[in-house]
Amino acid sequence: MSKHQRELIARRAAWEIQNGFYVNLGPGIPALAARFVPEGVEAVLVSESGVQGFGPLHHEHKGDRDLVDAANEPVALTPGASLFSSVDAYAMIRGGHLDLCIVGGFQVDERGNLANWMLPGRMVHGIGGVMDLACGAKRVVVAMEHRTPAKKPKILRNCTLPLTGLGVVHRVITELAVIDVTPQGLVLREVAAEVSVDEVCRETEAGLRVDKDLKIIQV
């Protein structure tokens, strides 16, 4: 996956962020989306480290050892910020107060099941906040590559990896497509420019219904 493609996914994911939203961005491609929030959209970033209202540091600022995001990276507060404990951070998350959470993914399946915390054979580093985020946010969007590095599909009929949450995903954004999870299964809403519906279907194990208003991804 090239840097350019990761950026394309992040750019499209940023369009999910609407005015007035409280948003949690997972590490990796989702965090990259913070750079591409559309002009005029005022949203508040929330981190389970215990801060709402933050952004990247200015280049000249070395950061504050008491202030990090969930990836332990130093951040800067934005005007209107507030700070809180882990108990409060997770009451917000679990209690449905977050409008949107964008996370990375290893696998998503037809029923919106998500696997993104554990790869067999690799050392497990823990669960962290992702299970709480996946089941608690009002809307869960997965921003990920369409295939594994070995070119295997990641959007499956059934997840095979240990799950993060059951039926939690609302939308998947990849470099090829935007796909919604609906009670009737997966619906292809958008395809990338110069990518055919056939190609998306070939790279997706799960069945896809094509939206009659299928659009080209605008980034």
Binding site: S85, D132, C135
Partner: peptide, 23 residues
């Protein structure tokens, strides 16, 4: 899970016998 860890400790400190979480 991180939120469950926080809440289990909260329950311990607040005299609760446990709680049901969707997480």
């Amino acid at each position: 899970p991180q939120g469950t860890l926080a809440e289990r400790i909260r329950a311990g400190g607040a005299g609760l016998g446990g709680f049901y979480t969707p997480t």
